[in-house]
């Protein structure tokens, strides 16, 4: 307590306050925010391009997901209020849909590259993504859920002055901003929520306890990525399935806790690539796995003044 004036807060409170400020408000390199921007923009580009072929099939006048049905489902047939706004809900004309679609693809490329008006571009990117997600309510999955919050945080600090090529070369410009750190922390905490949500809800399923969850993913006949089911032989095969299952569960539960320790962080970041590759191989959720691996890699990278 020595050296403190009577008006100062108690040491634990002051310490918690300075810890909070150091966590959120210590400036971080803008390159880091730019890398997150590039990841969100490139994932968004993939998202929009993946809609290209079947945009009319879903949202067109004779689409599988007409506007009236989307609106009814969003409000649970009038039982609830929906706050999901979508520009795509305004029209189902093929020409209008195509124009919006092409604009959003071009904007994703622009945002990934970086440049003037990056914040407006990031905002348009976010509105575009949310419009697609809200128009296709309940047709979206984990990939879109992660992409949405990445795009949201990029709006805070898109770091437009750092071009895509600089991000790829990992060159570190000297300027540092508080907003870049806020983006990084927001992404870290939100990713942590995804990991914990995944891990804890896995525990609600018997297949994650008896070790057969990987089988149900690997052997799904219509959605599996590659036919690894043929590798399963008795009795050794079941041990392999158990090992994959328990590894994925342990990774989901351990990562969001251990990644905060400086000692284990780098090992976990590397391990995350392997774990997410395993998720992609067994589940076929390549885009979700790639986005989670990339975001985890970037968000927890070691900064020059390691925290």
């Amino acid at each position: 307590m020595s050296g403190q004036t009577p008006a100062s807060p108690p040491v634990p409170l002051a310490s918690a306050g300075s810890g909070w400020n150091a966590f959120w408000f210590r400036p971080a390199p803008t390159t880091l925010a730019a890398q997150l921007r590039c990841l969100a923009a490139l994932a968004g580009l993939y998202f929009f391009v993946a809609w290209s072929e079947d945009l009319g099939d879903w949202f067109g006048p004779s689409g599988l997901w007409p506007r009236s049905l989307a609106a009814a489902v969003a409000t649970d047939f009038g039982a609830e209020t929906s706050y999901r706004f979508s520009v795509l809900q305004l029209s189902s004309s093929p020409a209008a849909l195509l124009a919006i679609h092409l604009l959003l693809i071009a904007n994703s490329v622009w945002l990934a590259w970086g440049g003037p008006a990056a914040r407006y571009s990031a905002l348009l990117h976010l509105v575009g993504l949310l419009s697609y997600m809200h128009r296709a309510t309940l047709l979206t999955g984990p990939f879109e859920a992660v992409l949405a919050f990445l795009a949201l945080y990029v709006v805070i600090e898109p770091a437009g002055s750092v071009r895509l090529t600089h991000c790829l070369r990992m060159t570190q410009p000297t300027d540092r901003r508080v907003s870049a750190n806020v983006v990084r922390r927001c992404v870290q905490l939100h990713l942590m929520a995804v990991y914990l949500c995944g891990g804890l809800t896995m525990l609600a399923g018997e297949v994650w306890w008896n070790g057969t969850a990987s089988w149900w993913l690997l052997a799904a006949p219509e959605s599996r990525q590659i036919d690894l089911a043929r590798l399963v032989t008795f009795p050794k095969g079941i041990y392999l399935l158990n090992l994959i299952t328990h590894t994925l569960l342990a990774f989901h539960l351990a990562f969001p806790i251990l990644v905060w320790s400086q000692r284990s962080r780098n090992s976990l970041r590397r391990l995350a690539w392997g774990a997410w590759l395993l998720v992609a191989l067994v589940s076929g959720l390549w885009s979700y796995a790639a986005l989670m691996a990339g975001a985890s890699w970037i968000a927890w990278q070691k900064l020059p003044d390691a925290d």
Binding site: Y83, P142, C197, S283
Partner: peptide, 17 residues
């Protein structure tokens, strides 16, 4: 809802069989 923060039963658990 407007920001898609409500995951609305997104299956992050991958499968329950």
């Amino acid at each position: 809802q407007p920001l898609a923060l409500d995951w609305n039963y997104t299956p992050f658990y991958l499968t329950h069989g």
